[in-house]
Design a protein around this nucleic acid. Structure first.
Length: 678
DNA sequence: CGGAGCATGG
């Protein structure tokens, strides 16, 4: 192929001499120009050609699809006197890779192609492009059909089809099929297929396997291989390993790029490492890659996660355009610091609000315990923007219901989900089950759980926790067994749920059985929640001696969670001496947590040791520990009413206290009570 | 003379 300069020279010459080159030559020139971004030049050549063949049409269509001029490309496609597979493939790949929502056009062209017969039969190029598209859309059933067609037409043996199939099955979240393709493939993999396989393992959380593949013939690894591994570490919470790989890349003489830095920024955010984040930021500025939206939002995310909202804002002001993820990071950052006014102001200033931004604002409200605002914002938004809703936002809203323990908004959201026909995946179903369980309706939780077509570990975990929460320990055990039968491997969260089930009824034997099964059968190392559960269990079963022995055997430094449980166990078993010793340790760790002082104070009060209680309360004031005021609340209609102790601020306070008085009197004389609500 | 695959966000 010519260099661009030679092409231009050649064209100038033939114009000067009045010589007309062959179609093939002009086709090559059109191709050369389009590859270098000279679409206008290519167009001119095309327009002035006396004769054209199918290559000519393909070259000019290619020029326009690559320049994202789809209407022009489509017009040329429609006008082309003859079309072959390449003509179709160009259009399909153009629509498939477009950022807009033109995917259906790619699918329609693919379907149209089936009627073309010999002239334009779908080939390996068509099938890999289509696999790429269904991977992007996560349409597993279409992917399977394309795989079938590939096998039928004998197009499943090349490295291209191999990598596309691995990628498609991996992105459609069926690792089982990835392995089938991998095991059925050839002995030798090219680099792209290898990289696709490493990425698939990382996506599945199979890091050991990913590492094994990566370090097999490491000399062929390229920047993509390294980026894949780094991203895999970050996504699986191994930020330190990612940073090691990042440094190692430089040693091996491989150059970092935007993908590398995007993952590294994400690692810095997770580690809350402002220092490393700033170093990455400096490198990014030097390389001039701030215009990449992944990078700019990543930098903002670092500052915002580290709580440095001043610098986050400075960066935010500099970047243009401000993409949704940058805005979202700012809102989340403000919310985490409790700057809800700033968060709201930024949110209101955004003219084009999409679901990413809305979800950030809603999640900010939920996390700062302003569930009412979250609901209000949602209903306001939903009126004018009903099509722009996604699952994550509903998961946040359901989280708000769970925190408030208010079932009515939860039910409304559930009904709404049905009405808009959103895809009910495991995550959404889990959020619904959790909401119903924590809002007190285990029956609905169960119904939703059994309505799910497939159940993953998280879904089992929330259901088991739901049963435990409601004291249905038998159902919890049964579900745990069912989960094992279906080949799911329990994790630490499962055991917290199952141990809680034991704890509620003081079922010591069962608890001990599950606790040892966790460490021995599943090699899960217990965390403080597990230890706390066991101590609580012994406490409730009035077996303080066992709790004491258990405490001594805990291999980790007891933290506030463990000591808190132990203190409760002492309280339940009326061992004030031991409680006092625990108290000192606890206050050493958590001197600023007011709730601890209250816990201690109530322990002494229950023993009638008023002097001790006074001593603790004094100590609390001395340390300026603050306890959040406990409150009760009730949802009526669309309003939330909250009440704190001896609170008379409610607008209906007189009527409320009158009703309360009436209720108390009714209870005292043991009479049926009739109350009319407003 | 042409067309395809792997790595980065809530």
């Amino acid at each position: 192929m010519w260099a661009l300069k030679d092409g231009l020279k050649f064209q100038a010459n033939f114009i000067k001499c009045g010589f007309t080159p062959s179609i093939v030559t002009i086709n090559q020139l059109i191709h050369l120009y389009s590859k270098n971004g000279f679409v206008e030049e290519a167009n001119k050549l095309f327009d002035e050609m006396p004769d054209r063949n199918v290559y000519t049409w393909n070259a000019i269509i290619n020029a326009h699809t690559k320049a994202q001029n789809f209407s022009k490309a489509q017009n040329l496609f429609d006008a082309a006197p003859s079309k072959d597979s390449v003509t179709y493939n160009l259009m399909i790949s153009g629509y498939a890779n477009d950022e807009g929502c033109e995917e259906d056009k790619a699918v329609n062209l693919f379907l149209q192609m089936q009627h073309e017969g010999e002239k334009a039969r779908p080939d390996e190029f068509t099938l890999t492009t289509m696999l790429n598209l269904v991977a992007k859309l996560r349409f597993l059933s279409w992917g399977r059909q394309l795989h079938g067609l590939m096998v039928k037409t004998g197009n499943n043996q090349s490295q291209f089809s191999l990598s596309s199939l691995i990628d498609m099955y991996s992105k459609c979240r069926t690792f089982h099929d990835v392995m089938r393709v991998y095991d059925g493939g050839p002995c030798v993999f090219d680099l792209v297929s290898k990289n696709a396989m490493v990425a698939a393992c990382c996506r599945e959380g199979e890091l050991d396997m990913a590492e094994k593949l990566f370090w097999h013939k490491p000399e062929i690894n390229d920047v993509v291989s390294w980026n894949t591994m780094i991203a895999g570490y970050v996504q699986n919470g191994h930020e330190e390993a990612a940073l090691d790989m990042f440094k190692c890349m430089a040693v091996k003489g491989l150059k970092w790029n935007q993908h590398t830095l995007a993952s590294i920024l994400s690692a810095c955010s997770s580690l809350k490492s402002l220092k490393m984040g700033k170093q990455a930021h400096a490198w990014i500025l030097k390389e001039g890659i701030m215009n990449n939206p992944f990078i700019s939002s990543g930098v903002i995310e670092v500052y915002s996660k580290c709580g440095d909202m001043k610098d986050a804002k400075n960066v935010y002001k500099e970047i243009m355009p401000q993409n949704s993820f940058a805005i979202s990071s700012m809102i989340v950052g403000y919310s985490a610091k409790g700057y809800m006014t700033e968060a709201r102001r930024l949110f209101d200033s955004v003219t084009e609000k999409n679901s990413v931004i809305l979800t950030a604002m809603i999640s900010g409200f939920v996390k700062s315990n302003q569930s009412e605002e979250a609901f209000e914002l949602f209903s306001k938004f939903v009126e004018k923007n009903a099509e722009n809703l996604d699952a994550l936002m509903f998961i946040n809203l359901l989280g708000a219901c769970t925190i408030q323990a208010t079932i009515d908004p939860g039910k409304q959201i559930h009904a709404y989900l049905f009405r808009i026909g959103i895809e009910m995946d495991e995550v959404l179903i889990s959020a619904l089950v959790d909401m119903y369980a924590k809002c007190g309706n285990i029956k609905y939780a169960k119904q939703v759980f059994y309505s799910a077509t497939s159940r993953d570990l998280v879904l089992y975990n929330v259901m088991i926790a739901g049963y435990a929460h409601h004291g249905h320990e038998y159902e919890a055990y049964q579900l745990f067994e069912e989960m094992l039968k279906r080949g799911l491997r329990p994790d630490g969260v499962t055991f917290i749920a199952i141990l809680s089930a034991c704890r509620h009824r003081g079922l010591v034997d069962a608890g001990e059985k599950y606790f040892s099964s966790m460490t021995e059968d599943y090699a899960i190392s217990p965390e403080s929640d597990h230890y706390a559960c066991m101590i609580d269990l012994y406490g409730r079963a009035n077996q303080l001696e066992k709790a004491i022995i258990f405490m001594e055997r805990i291999p980790i430094q007891p933290d506030a969670v463990i000591l808190g449980s132990f203190l409760n166990a002492c309280k339940m078993n009326r061992n004030v001496e031991l409680a006092k010793a625990t108290e000192d340790k606890l206050l050493q760790i958590e001197g600023d947590n007011g709730a601890r002082y209250v816990q201690l104070a109530s322990l002494y009060a229950s023993e009638g040791k008023w002097d001790e209680k006074g001593r603790i309360m004094k100590k609390m004031r001395g340390n300026e520990a603050k306890k959040l005021t406990g409150c009760s609340w009730v949802h009526i209609g669309n309003r939330l009413h909250t009440f704190t102790s001896s609170d008379r601020s409610h607008s209906e306070t007189e009527a409320l206290y009158a009703t309360l008085k009436c209720l108390i009197q009714g209870l005292q004389v043991n009479m049926p009570i009739e109350i009319e609500f407003l």
